[in-house]
Nucleic acid binder design. Structure first.
Lengths: 190, 190
DNA sequence: ACGAACAGCAACATCGAAGTATCAGTTAGG
DNA sequence: CCTAACTGATACTTCGATGTTGCTGTTCGT
């Protein structure tokens, strides 16, 4: 293992990751130089922190997925009725996903570390959905794999919803929209 | 305008477009050579038919979108109750989308021609959803823009559903799943 | 304050892909 | 059948991105 980084180096790493998110969101094939420029650094410094391009995007994936896990666990998904937990988790996830829009929209994990984190995320989700089903929130015969897939898709779509303010979308309002659509669809109620 | 192509040249164009779909689906950054090889042709021939890479992917987008329009219109979306039309359109779209999975998953139109086709597709969809709403299929206060967005997302997700057979998914079964989810979500009925 | 870690600069080497040109051989179509 | 159109082979040129090295100056940590 490598020694701990110095404070300025760690700042650089963070700046690179955040810049990479911004730049790659607009052009997934952006060059290392574009990323470096967006980070206020030189291409060489980027190469010092991340040996190659793949290492950078891998680190980006791990970082974003970890933040997603933190956001989920911060919502304490097991300490309230499923509906309440679902709202809290969804709102928190919304916040993180809006920040790491690009990285988290490509779930494909090229690293074992990223795959492990992804498994953890999926675990949280299936737990919650299972609980929701037992509490009568979901139909008893609902296909939970399909439900999870739809839930993920709705999370992404809600972020792409052409709202009034671009980035300042209210996470709670979006969470309400997502959960309402997930549970009831667009058909008439009652 | 250029003259009509000879029969073998037209076969080549088709082969290139189909190969590009297959290859780019696995690697969006695949080289022209990989595409040419998959088409059973030489890179030079590909360059003769499509001046540059962008021209190729643009043509791909136009071709796939046109097939999508044909599939929609073949379903006669205005000649039956909205629910029936919705089923027919969805099943037909499913068939085309499974063939042009990659191209149609990137709706971004870089060409005015592609944009026009996309507008036409959207027009068909909003017409159908409007009719569905008036016939009581959708809630009177449903946000049709959001509904359309969800509908598109469900179409994509259904294709990525890890089913038993990979490509031989039954379009009618998938259409049923999509529409059922769109109208009722995953919550309990009644 | 002093050494170690860090960032910038400049210059390289390498590489793959894109695109072009010419010529020779093959195929389509009136 | 005979010309025009098409494909393939070979050989270029160009270009941008990647990754590396040595050096100088700066900043952090103790």
């Amino acid at each position: 293992m490598s020694r701990a980084l110095r404070a300025d180096a760690e700042r650089s790493v963070r700046a690179i990751l955040e810049a990479a998110e911004r730049v790659l969101a607009e052009d997934p094939n952006a060059s290392m130089e574009q990323i470096a420029e967006a980070a206020g650094l030189t291409r060489i410094t980027v190469h010092r922190r991340f040996a190659n391009r793949q290492a950078l995007v891998d680190a980006l994936a791990v970082s974003a997925k970890q933040q997603l896990i933190d956001a989920i666990e911060e919502a304490r998904p097991d300490s309230a009725p499923a509906l309440v937990a679902l709202y809290r988790v969804t709102a928190n996830v919304m916040r993180v996903k809006s920040t790491w829009r690009f990285t988290l929209s490509h779930a494909t994990a090229h690293t074992s570390a990223a795959a492990a984190l992804w498994e953890e995320i999926n675990g949280h989700t299936v737990n919650l959905l299972n609980r929701a089903q037992h509490e009568g929130l979901l139909a008893p015969d609902a296909d939970l794999d399909w439900t999870r897939q739809v839930y993920y898709a709705l999370l992404s779509e809600a972020l792409n919803k052409p709202g009034t303010d671009p980035a300042a979308q209210d996470p709670d309002a979006l969470a309400t929209l997502v959960i309402d659509t997930l549970l009831h669809g667009a058909g008439p109620r009652g």
